[in-house]
Design a protein around this nucleic acid. Structure first.
Lengths: 190, 190
DNA sequence: CACCAAAGTTACACATCTGTCACTTTTATG
DNA sequence: CATAAAAGTGACAGATGTGTAACTTTGGTG
């Protein structure tokens, strides 16, 4: 009967994420991954035809999690609750935003990858819709300035999380600072 | 006497930048570069021992240009002029910010690289000083909120340039929009 | 024209990664 | 205990990239 696996899918995906962040898409190899997991390369080939297939599977997994989080946020009653929850989610795992462009680098070289990229596109459409609702609610509740394009508002939120906390300010304070700047800007009201 | 070169240093650095942006640090190879420049790999080895040496030279070149631009900005009289000039500089070449972390990936494997990384560190110190002066001027002229850490202010400026202009708004309008949001935030003053 | 030096090339040995296949190990089941 | 299947491995062939050395080309100078 089945021999026990040396790594779970979660452990595998955790390794994939770690090595993508460390080496980038093109620096990520099955050789590096096998070494990290302490298995042979052939063991990984048992499950995935190539690195592109593995990375596309991993992207689907991460984006589905993200979409579920976004949906949970969308169910909160007020804009302010949604706004706070969005930040908590983002700061809970900053690295997702570093790898979000990597999905675009995956070439379609087998059917599985094509299917995965279609899934990814579908998830992104749903994410886009969810995020648009968030922004529209913000405008409706007279928080966001109506004249601002939605993607600028969203871009603002997702890009500013990249600002490094160089002074090692405690995270809750840092998050509030970032929110303050996003909401009211760098300038004094004069 | 000397045979004419098939590529200038500027052309070489332009190719390096293009390929670093396209393939990332680990995907960048002399093979890819030689093909792009339409020369043999050995031709590049005539000037640089390895890719790390070439990339570190290139980083010095780019950062020196950036520092010169910053110094020119620092010589403007008012904060508002400096603020506008900083944005013009940043949006004139957005890609520099995408490769700024690549310098950190370069391992020191020969003396030249060590020297280059020391140069890079020196330039970054000067850049840091120049940027701090910019922020302090902004605070002194009662523009920036004093309570904000300097790196948050700078981080805000440098990260928001990454927001993609998805609606293809004309660049001058887009830049003003970004400035508006950075200065006064996403929220209405209520 | 000969000479020279810089620039560039080809070909080679070596290193690293990919993909596969035959084989081994492990575990549960009858 | 034998059997079977999933999981994992080692070794191989091939592809790709690195670094080098001997050689060729190019262009200026005397």
């Amino acid at each position: 009967m089945a021999r026990e696996r040396k790594f779970t899918k979660e452990e595998l995906y955790h390794a994939v994420k770690h090595l993508l962040l460390k080496h980038g898409y093109e620096g990520f190899t099955f050789t590096v991954l096998a070494s990290y997991l302490d298995v042979s390369r052939a063991a990984i080939y048992k499950y995935y035809e190539n690195k592109e297939e593995l990375i596309s599977e991993y992207m689907v997994y991460e984006l589905e999690k993200f979409l579920n989080d976004m949906k949970a946020i969308g169910e909160k009653k007020t804009f302010q609750e949604q706004f706070d929850a969005l930040f908590d989610m983002i700061f809970a795992d900053l690295s997702l935003y570093e790898i979000r462009t990597m999905g675009m680098q995956i070439p379609i070289i087998n059917k599985k990858i094509k299917m995965n990229k279609q899934k990814i596109s579908g998830i992104i459409v749903e994410l886009y819709s969810s995020l648009q609702q968030f922004v529209e609610l913000g405008k409706k509740e007279q928080a966001f300035k109506e004249e601002l394009p939605n993607n600028l508002i969203l871009g603002m939120i997702f890009e500013t999380v990249n600002i490094p906390n160089q002074n090692n300010i405690p995270l809750p304070d840092w998050v509030e600072m970032i929110k303050g700047v996003i909401c009211h800007g760098l300038f004094k009201n004069n």
